[in-house]
Amino acid sequence: MVAIAVELRNIEGTEAAMGWAGYHTIIVDRPEGKAGGLGLGFNGAQLLALAIGGCFCNDLRYVAESMGVQIRSLAVMVSVDLSGTPLIATSAAMKVNCTLLDGSDPAPLIKQAKESCMVSNSLSRGIPVSIENA
């Protein structure tokens, strides 16, 4: 089993948080005027969409390498639908525009990346999330 961990801490003088994993950082905040948010960073829904799309982009590269093909261009658009109280993600949709350097059909690459994408597969299968007071 592989495990990863990230940390988040408040940014002094704001109500935003900075998250990091290793040497990489990201700012998490609410939209300006919402619950003290200043719009300094991504909100949770945006981070969810970025995780879905970002993981898929990485997996496309892994699969392309294993198939011996090169990606010429790649654009991925992700939308997440939210509803309810409390607000939850009810669905996500991803559109992939991919062209390969050799001009071949990218459909097999996209199909294989879809089958191996950790984030979308984890979400579609459901994962337990525990929250406890440290």
Score class of each variant (00 low, 15 high):
Lys34Thr: 07
Gly37Trp: 04
Ser120Tyr: 04
Ala93Asn: 11
Lys111Val: 12
Lys111Phe: 13
Arg61Ile: 08
Pro86Asp: 14
Gly126Ser: 00
Trp20Met: 14
Ala134Phe: 04
Ile131Met: 02
Cys117Ala: 10
Ile71Ala: 04
Pro31His: 01
Lys114Gln: 12
Ile110Asn: 07
Ser104Met: 06
Ile71Cys: 13
Ala64Arg: 01
Glu12Asn: 05
Leu74Trp: 03
Val28Tyr: 01
Leu109Met: 13
Ile26Cys: 13
Ala51Asp: 08
Glu15Ala: 07
Tyr62Glu: 08
Ser79Pro: 10
Ser130Leu: 10
Leu48Arg: 01
Gly44Trp: 03
Trp20Gln: 12
Val69Tyr: 05
Asn97Pro: 04
Lys111Asn: 13
Val28Arg: 03
Ala89Cys: 06
Ser79His: 08
Asn58Trp: 14
Leu109Ser: 02
Ser122His: 03
Glu132Met: 09
Glu65Val: 03
Leu50Cys: 07
Val76Leu: 09
Asn97Ala: 15
Ala16Gly: 05
Lys111Gly: 03
Asp102Glu: 12
Cys98Thr: 09
Leu82Phe: 05
Met118Val: 15
Thr85Val: 10
Leu87Gln: 11
Ser116Asp: 14
Ala93Gln: 14
Leu87Asn: 11
Met77Ser: 15
Leu74Phe: 02
Met18Ala: 11
Pro31Glu: 04
Gly19Lys: 01
Val78Leu: 03
Gly53Asn: 02
Ala92Arg: 06
Leu87Phe: 12
Ile71Asn: 01
Val76Ala: 05
Thr99Lys: 11
Met118Pro: 14
Phe56Asn: 03
Ser79Val: 07
Ile131Leu: 05
Ile52Pro: 00
Leu100Gln: 07
Gly41Gln: 01
Asn121Pro: 07
Asp81Ile: 05
Lys95Gln: 14
Glu15Trp: 01
Ser91His: 08
Gly53Ile: 00
Gly103Lys: 13
Gly53Glu: 00
Arg9Pro: 01
Ala3Gln: 12
Asn58Leu: 15
Val78Thr: 13
Glu32Ile: 09
Gly68Gln: 10
Gly41Ile: 02
Thr85His: 11
Arg61Phe: 12
Met118Trp: 14
Gly68Met: 03
Met77Gly: 15
Leu50Pro: 08
Glu32Thr: 15
Leu100Met: 04
Ala134Lys: 12
Gln70Asn: 13
Arg30Pro: 00
Leu100Pro: 02
Glu115Ile: 08
Ser104Tyr: 03
Ala134Arg: 13
Cys57Ile: 09
Phe42Ile: 08
Leu100Val: 04
Arg125Gly: 13
Glu65Arg: 15
Ala107Met: 13
Ala51Pro: 10
Gly37Tyr: 06
Gln70His: 07
Asp102Lys: 04
Met77Phe: 06
Ser73Ala: 12
Glu32Asn: 05
Val28Ser: 15
Val78Cys: 02
Pro128Tyr: 01
Gly41Val: 03
Ala3Arg: 13
Pro86Arg: 03
His24Asp: 06
Gly22Tyr: 09
Gly41Asp: 01
Ala16Arg: 00
Ala49Pro: 02
Arg30Ile: 02
Pro86Ser: 13
Ile88Phe: 02
Ser66Trp: 05
Gly36Trp: 01
Met67Trp: 05
Gly13Thr: 01
Lys114Gly: 15
Tyr23Ile: 11
Pro128Thr: 10
Ser104Trp: 08
Lys111Leu: 14
Ala75Asn: 10
Leu101Ala: 10
Ser130Val: 05
Val119Trp: 06
Leu40Ala: 08
Ala16Val: 00
Met18Val: 15
Val96Tyr: 10
